[in-house]
Amino acid sequence: MSEEHHGHLQLQYQPALPMSNGKTFMWLFLSTEIMFFAALIGTYIVLRFGAPVWPTPHQVHLSEPIGAFNTFVLILSSVTIVLTLEAARANRAGLAKLFMLVTLGLGTIFLLVKAYEYNAKFSHGIYPQKPRSLIYERPTLPFASAVRQRLAEITGELALEDSRSEEEEEHLKVATILLAHATQVERTAAQSADNPAGILALSQMAEMITPLGYGAGGAHGSQPKVAGEGLAEVLAGADHGLNDKYHWLKLPMVIPGGNMWASTYFLLTGFHALHVVVGLIVFAIMLGMRLDKSRAPHIENIGLYWHFVDLVWIFLFPLLYLF
């Protein structure tokens, strides 16, 4: 190494790739990750455009500004992790730690916003699968039965209680009126499921529970002409549907294409969120170290991973929120 010895064969180690093993394997890992997410995103694209109907963001309570905000947060965190690397290369350990802390904070904000969004879906009965999911694809007879059963369950439970609070009395009153209506609808549908009367009754009930918001014409469904006793009073002010006005009802609802949407949405964002969690764990571990020049290669590797997570979100945001 140090001195030239003439007459001796001088061997020099030459790595196959001009970089460290850690970085090589991080890139290999990332190339498998590219294919993993490409599979998920590709499947989503194909399913979404092959689907006969897909819910609008409004129907599934997606908020585009929140998604855009999360995009901004991730981009910002990408900048801070690259600044961490630069600071570590310049041997400024304190500054590097500060930037990494900011990155950790931004990643946490992303996850919190994601959790808020998931919670908004869950509270509206949108889950990836039954039995928690309340989504029905079409207003059919099984849907009417499910609504009637849910109302019967509510009224049954409340009626059995010995002493009811004022609120519970109100709930019981509303549920009883709706139960009478749902029973009526189910009977109409059962007798004539394939003729206009049955179809109309079913669609009107579906619109009553969750209006699909298809322009002005669709809103008429929320004002049914079927006059039940006290029904008009219950429906008053429920422009966004019964499930919205009475959160405790949690009635089965019709969102065309909603089940496929929920499956793909939760799978894609869930896997992405898992990747964010892994990144945050590594950041938290590295914060316990001294981030000087000797740590720069490690910071570069986790940085590559973090940029990849950002990259995936860059595609997920328009595909899930804006398409």
Binding site: P55, T56, R138, Y214, G215, G217, G218
Partner: peptide, 20 residues
């Protein structure tokens, strides 16, 4: 199908010509 197929612009809540 859940709702009649819209040939032109699927799932656009702003548009007034919708399945109805």
């Amino acid at each position: 199908m859940a709702v009649p197929q819209v040939t032109d612009a699927p799932a656009d809540q702003h548009s007034s010509e919708q399945p109805d």
